[in-house]
């Protein structure tokens, strides 16, 4: 019993969720790293196909989508700042903004995909296979983030968060920022290089 008390005194319970999210994100680094590895192989072996498809990609549209995701990340830190200051209404507005921006990002990605399909880009092509697989998996992460966000919004509406207790907002934020970081890398590797 004394050992248990000593352990819980050393690691506060409220920090365990945050630790778990960071451990999960460490695993996600390996997951996306492995995907990027396949992209490097495809790119090296099919350089001509990648150069050809580059002309089909709309850099302005994807640049706008990147801006949307970065803006949503900024709203996350503002949302956290709002609840740390005890401003629950401000928290809700920021969370709603993040949801709209996340949905816009997915809409932009859907628009881009449909345009590329219309241009004749196949999922089985040298560029299409890694492109649709990796951006699709990233989009799935955004979708999961939106579902998580709905849960956070529901709890915020019920007044579960306060200046003293807001780890649910913080852990969601960590995940959302990570998804943003992954997009920063993918944006460079697929569209710009």
């Amino acid at each position: 019993m004394a050992e248990l008390q000593a352990a819980t005194a050393f690691v506060p319970q409220r920090e365990n969720a945050k630790l778990a999210v960071w451990a999960f994100l460490g695993g996600e680094v390996v997951f996306f790293g492995a995907l990027i590895l396949t992209l490097i192989v495809f790119r090296a072996r099919e350089a001509a196909a990648f150069a050809e498809v580059r002309t089909l990609l709309s850099i302005p549209l994807v640049g706008l989508n990147t801006f949307i995701l970065i803006l949503s990340s900024y709203l996350v830190v503002r949302a956290l700042g709002a609840i740390r200051a005890g401003r629950q209404r401000s928290l809700l507005w920021h969370l709603a903004g993040i949801f709209v921006l996340g949905a816009l990002f997915l809409g932009g990605q859907a628009l881009e995909w449909s345009t590329l399909f219309a241009e004749g880009l196949s999922v089985r092509s040298a560029f299409g296979t890694p492109f649709f697989a990796i951006t699709g998996l990233h989009g799935t992460h955004v979708l999961v983030g939106l579902m998580w966000l709905v849960y956070v919004i529901v709890l915020a509406l019920r007044g579960r968060y306060s200046s003293a207790s807001h780890q649910g907002v913080e852990t969601f934020g960590l995940y959302w920022h990570f998804v943003d970081v992954v997009w920063i890398v993918l944006f460079t590797l697929f569209y710009l290089i």
Binding site: W22, A23, L25, G26, V29, A34, L37
Partner: peptide
């Protein structure tokens, strides 16, 4: 925790 992930995958890449 983040570095462990990076250290595992970076040399491979």
């Amino acid at each position: 925790l983040l570095l462990i992930g990076l250290l595992l995958v970076s040399p491979l890449i």
